Every structure is written in structure tokens, then in C-alpha cells.
Computed example of a mutant assay.
Amino acid sequence: MKARNLVLAAFACLTLAACGGVDPDSPMGQRQAIFKQMLKTSEDLGGMLRGRVPFNEQRLVEGAAELDRISRTPWQHFPQVKDEGDTRAKDEVWQRQARFQELARETEAATAALVAATTATPLNSTELVAPMQRVEDSCKACHEEFRAY
């Protein structure tokens, strides 16, 4: 009888734990996953350029291309109507769509410029600091206007 009760209690705990998260297939879940991927990639690149992570030219070039690719994807997961649930996006995302889209394009332009800077040979890490800073600044600008902390 005790084993049965333990199994039922464990099952109940797992079921309740699963209810608290965001559906990964929802627009909110999709964009959160993309933004986490963008953050991880950006942190790796910034770490290489600031000396916190060993500089690896191939990883930097590949990371810049990956960041550019994924920077174009989260915007499609912002539906025309505000999400239900606990979103970190401010209401202004839906109220000021033109500005939100403008900042999205600025982020895309910054990541494209970073990729362009990685085509110079030989690759000079000090020349990549400014393009990487523009990427980080574009992310920060959007967060300051449209993300609730």
C-alpha cells in the first residue's frame, strides 16, 4: 500500500510541475526559446571578443552567422493580439507595432553587419568589438522599450 501511495504522490507532483510552464509550441514558448538561443550565442561571441572565452576564429564566424540567422526568427512569434499568460513582453509590443518592428529590423541589420565584419581575412578580433557592441546595443534598446522585468 505504501509503494502505491508513493507512486501516486510522485505522479501528482510531476503532473503539477508540468502544468506551470509555457507551452513550447505556443508563440510565447517559441519566441522564448529563440531569445534564449540568441542570448547564449551572443554571450559566447562577446566572451571571445572580451577575453573571457578563448578566441576561436571558426567558432566566432559560425556563431555570428548563427546569430544572424536566428535574429530574424522571433518576430514571427509575436501574434497580432497580446498573449495570454505570464509574458515578459510589455503591452507596448502590441500597441506600438511600428516601433517594435523598427527595432527588430535594427537588430537584424546589426547581426548582418557582424557577419560582414567576419569576412575580413585575416580576422582581427579587435575590429569585431564595435559590430558586436552594435548587436548588444540593439538588443538592449528593444528590451528597454518592450520587455517587462
Rank of each mutant, 00 (worst) to 15 (best):
F100P: 02
K40P: 06
M1Y: 12
R147E: 00
A10R: 06
P54L: 09
L123S: 08
E145T: 11
F35L: 06
L45R: 03
R69F: 13
R96P: 05
Q76I: 14
A9C: 05
A104C: 14
A3I: 13
F146W: 05
I34A: 03
L8T: 09
N5A: 15
D25A: 13
V53I: 03
G21E: 08
L8M: 12
N124L: 08
E106P: 03
C13I: 15
L60Q: 03
T87H: 01
A113R: 07
L123I: 10
A120D: 06
D25K: 13
P27W: 03
C139G: 01
D137Q: 13
R99K: 09
L14F: 15
R59H: 12
D23C: 08
C13T: 15
A89P: 01
Q133K: 13
V81L: 13
D25E: 15
M132Q: 05
H77E: 06
M48H: 02
E108G: 05
S71F: 06
E127W: 07
R88W: 12
E127G: 11
E92R: 09
A89K: 01
A112D: 09
T87D: 01
A112L: 15
T126K: 10
E127I: 14
A33K: 09
P79R: 04
R72P: 02
G29P: 00
L123H: 04
T111L: 05
E92A: 14
L123R: 04
E144L: 10
A10T: 05
L114G: 03
E43Q: 06
D68I: 10
A12Q: 08
V129A: 09
V53M: 08
D23V: 11
V81K: 12
E106I: 12
P24M: 07
L6I: 11
C142S: 03
R134N: 07
L16K: 04
A18H: 11
S125W: 07
Q76N: 12
D44W: 04
L39H: 07
R4Y: 08
F11H: 08
V7S: 05
R134Y: 09
C142L: 05
L8Q: 09
W75D: 01
E144R: 09
E145W: 07
A17E: 06
E66I: 13
F55Q: 13
L123F: 11
A112I: 14
A130M: 13
A109F: 01
Q37T: 12
S26L: 02
L45V: 06
M132D: 04
W94R: 07
R134I: 09
D137N: 09
K82P: 00
Q97I: 13
H143V: 02
L103D: 00
T73P: 00
K40C: 12
A130R: 08
E62P: 01
L8K: 06
V115P: 01
A148G: 08
V53Q: 02
A113V: 07
F100M: 02
S26Y: 01
Q58L: 15
D23T: 10
Q37A: 13
M28D: 04
V129Q: 05
Q37P: 04
A9K: 12
D68F: 04
T121R: 10
T107R: 09
M1V: 13
S71P: 02
A98V: 11
Q37K: 11
E102Y: 07
N124W: 08
R59P: 00
